[in-house]
Design a protein around this nucleic acid. Structure first.
Lengths: 304, 304
DNA sequence: ATGATCGTTCGTTTTTTTCTGAATCGACCC
DNA sequence: GGGTCGATTCAGAAAAAAACGAACGATCAT
């Protein structure tokens, strides 16, 4: 029905804090009758008395106490909103607040996002990194504009978001020079006793790699499981084991991690999805990101 | 100045989610001119454009994106308020939401609070237990009505609360039968090698006890430090060591913990403060609690 | 009792908000 | 280019909401 009259609520809030209608009227610069009347309207709409008579003053009822807790937060947020908007930088630089799911390779995310900044020089990136669920929650509260992840958002969820498939990246195995030299000959069967680093079972990629191993009849020695792919590559660089990564990133992996490709994981690919809020008015940079979707993304990323 | 027009904000919110003024007008059942006009008023008040023209529609500006995040939460809270108030129990039983600081003995808190329920049979207690700082924050947001703690609230703080001294409880040392038999003779000098359980240094009581030890020339063996006094008494009951507790609770300690007093800690007392929100309209039960303050509280508590 | 304080309730007035209708402008589609 | 769509602006009229003045009850202090 009628949502909630915030003007009435504001009167209630001031009265509750001032402790009396008279004082509240003084502070608000209106007559006491006005407040009294508007308060009864609010009470009628809520179907509960907010105050009870006590002596010649009033006291909060149980419902009033409950309401006051919410009202406190509401008007605190209202003040914060004004402050945030007024104080928001005057430069009209576009901010793109992106959440990056723990699982996906940072270099891939960087490649995708940097394309947006390249197309429009006036975009400022703000990156957050966390778990899938947390990111979705932030998205729902508009603390983020887009979430990059390896799987689409659950369809039946209570959150109104929608997913765009940004691309598919063929995957291979990488290792430092020593391990690469040892295991590249005879790939993939040479992996039978190879030390392997894998993402944890939370990640879609993990299952795909395990299935690939079964198909190829190898049962490698999993020496490490990582929630965070950056950590995994760091350990891989140190020589702990062989690790999977998108083949498109071979050049950067060689340069930054000093690691070489050993072989391709046929049929195993890293999916990247962009999840954004389901509203017609979308962030221009998110628009750009999603539109750039399935057209030649691998090549573009590789060329970063 | 004028706080913030929530009606305007509501229009903004619907427009942002619907994606266009036309759709929003349809959903709200008002004319498009109305929304357009009120939106410009809001923008003028905030001093920033919330939307920018994009094609023949509109897009959120940077300031608009910031505002939308707040608006989402505000109207979510508004709905929650209505639901909470409408659904709040019809019984007009008074709820007293009390926060109990980790440090103070639960039995003391129980004694003080149960007096309130005894005086007014229609009070329902809701107890929370946490750290001092967290409790103060909950108090400020009206999630709690009163906080029981062992020290007054800091005066210079940014929170508008005030403290009432509820009472002072003389303290003694307790132990199970075996330890009591061994250390009671020659008290306090017998404590020289006694195993002692103490609250951690966060608690005011800790300092008082240490000073008492110095005054009496004993340096006991501190075998345990506890953040939570209930945990301390549990270990004391098991025989780990001697523990301090209010003398007024001797009866209950004997019954529930099977422990006996060894001796009094002269000059060491447990202070109890009630901290409540500084507003004229106070919770009736809090009123009762604070009023019962310094009059014969020890006897009353002991008699519970 | 008496005056002062506080909240409520009635009408009435004032202010604010909204509606109608028409005109303008820019961007898009065919 | 013509037609459509969406947003903006303006005017006057209508409706809704808020505010006020005055009178009334209840409570408390003295």
């Amino acid at each position: 029905m009628t949502p909630l009259n915030f003007k009435h609520l504001h009167y209630f809030w001031v009265v509750a804090h001032e402790g009396s209608i008279t004082r509240a009227a003084g502070r608000l610069g209106v007559a006491v009758q006005t407040i009294s009347g508007q308060l009864s309207l609010l009470e009628r709409q809520l179907g509960k008395a907010l105050f009870t008579s006590q002596g010649r003053g009033l006291a909060l009822s149980e419902a009033g106490r409950a309401a006051l807790g919410y009202a406190d937060r509401i008007f605190e947020l209202g003040d914060a909103l004004v402050e945030a908007v007024r104080g928001s930088d005057n430069d009209n630089a576009l901010r793109l607040r992106a959440g990056i799911s723990d699982g996906i390779p940072k270099l891939l995310a960087y490649g995708l996002l940097s394309r947006v900044t390249a197309m429009n020089g006036n975009v400022r990136l703000i990156c957050d990194e966390s778990e899938f669920e947390d990111l979705l929650a932030d998205l729902a509260l508009h603390r983020l504009d887009v979430v990059l992840t390896d799987r689409p958002a659950p369809v039946g969820g209570n959150l109104k978001v929608f997913s765009t498939h940004l691309g598919e990246f063929a995957t291979g195995l990488f290792a430092n020079a020593e391990l690469a030299a040892r295991y590249r000959p005879g790939f993939p069967h040479s992996l039978a006793d190879a030390p392997l680093l894998l993402p944890t079972r939370h990640h879609a990629l993990r299952h795909h790699i395990e299935r690939w191993c079964e198909r190829n009849g190898v049962r490698p020695n999993v020496v490490g499981e990582f929630e965070d792919s950056a950590l995994m590559t760091t350990f891989g660089r140190g020589g702990l084991g062989i690790f999977p990564a998108p083949l498109a990133l071979a050049g950067q992996i060689a340069a930054q991690l000093d690691a070489q490709p050993i072989g391709a994981l046929d049929g195993v690919s890293e999916q990247i999805y962009a999840i954004s809020n389901e509203r017609r008015i979308r962030h221009p940079a998110v628009e750009l990101l999603c539109a750039s979707g399935s057209a030649g993304e691998a090549a573009a990323v590789a060329g970063v």
